[in-house]
Simulated scan of single mutants.
Amino acid sequence: MENLHIVFWLLKDIGWCLIWKPLGLVMIFPTLLIAILIAYNTRQLVSELCHNLAIAFWISANSYWMISEFLHFDELMVFAGVTFKHLALVPFLLGLICLLYYYIWWKPRHPDSIETM
């Protein structure tokens, strides 16, 4: 499933790069769905869960950014110099928070835990 996930992700980004909207937009769904399923399936291992949640948030941010460019609202202002493209920072930061939680809080308090499957 993880290998297929990479194929979908690459197809999504190829669609974005080539400005082929149908491919880019359609590939959001399997890419994000598999990322969420991978995170769910690894929920017993905090290390894997945090990293896989960060990936799901990354794909969400990346997909939103792509959509904003495809639909030409990426440069529109939301407020005070912030564009709609900048709103992609929300899921990017949520992913970063997942990783910071793991590396700064959880891992130092559980040094002997099993970290991989």
Rank of each mutant, 00 (worst) to 15 (best):
L100M: 11
F8T: 01
L11F: 11
Y101H: 09
I14L: 15
L93R: 04
K85R: 13
I38A: 04
L89E: 10
E69Y: 09
D74N: 15
A61D: 05
F79W: 12
L25P: 00
A35N: 10
G81S: 10
P108M: 11
H86Q: 09
L100T: 08
S68H: 02
L49Q: 06
S68V: 09
T31L: 01
I34H: 03
G95C: 04
A61P: 02
F79V: 14
L71V: 14
I36F: 03
M117H: 15
F92N: 04
P111E: 12
H86Y: 06
I67A: 08
I55G: 03
A35E: 01
I19M: 12
W65Y: 14
C98S: 13
W20S: 03
V26E: 03
I14E: 05
Q44M: 12
M117S: 13
T31S: 07
K107T: 03
A39G: 03
L71N: 10
L10D: 05
F57M: 12
N62E: 10
A54H: 03
H72E: 11
L4F: 07
V90N: 06
I55E: 04
L99W: 06
A39E: 01
W58P: 02
L33Q: 02
K85L: 12
A39L: 06
Y101I: 03
P111T: 13
A56N: 02
T83N: 07
W65R: 10
E75L: 09
P91Y: 00
F79S: 09
K107W: 03
P91M: 07
A56G: 03
I59E: 01
W105Q: 11
F29Y: 09
L76I: 10
S68N: 04
L76T: 12
F57P: 00
S113L: 10
I14W: 14
I28H: 00
L10A: 10
R43K: 14
V90F: 14
L87A: 09
A61M: 05
W58Q: 08
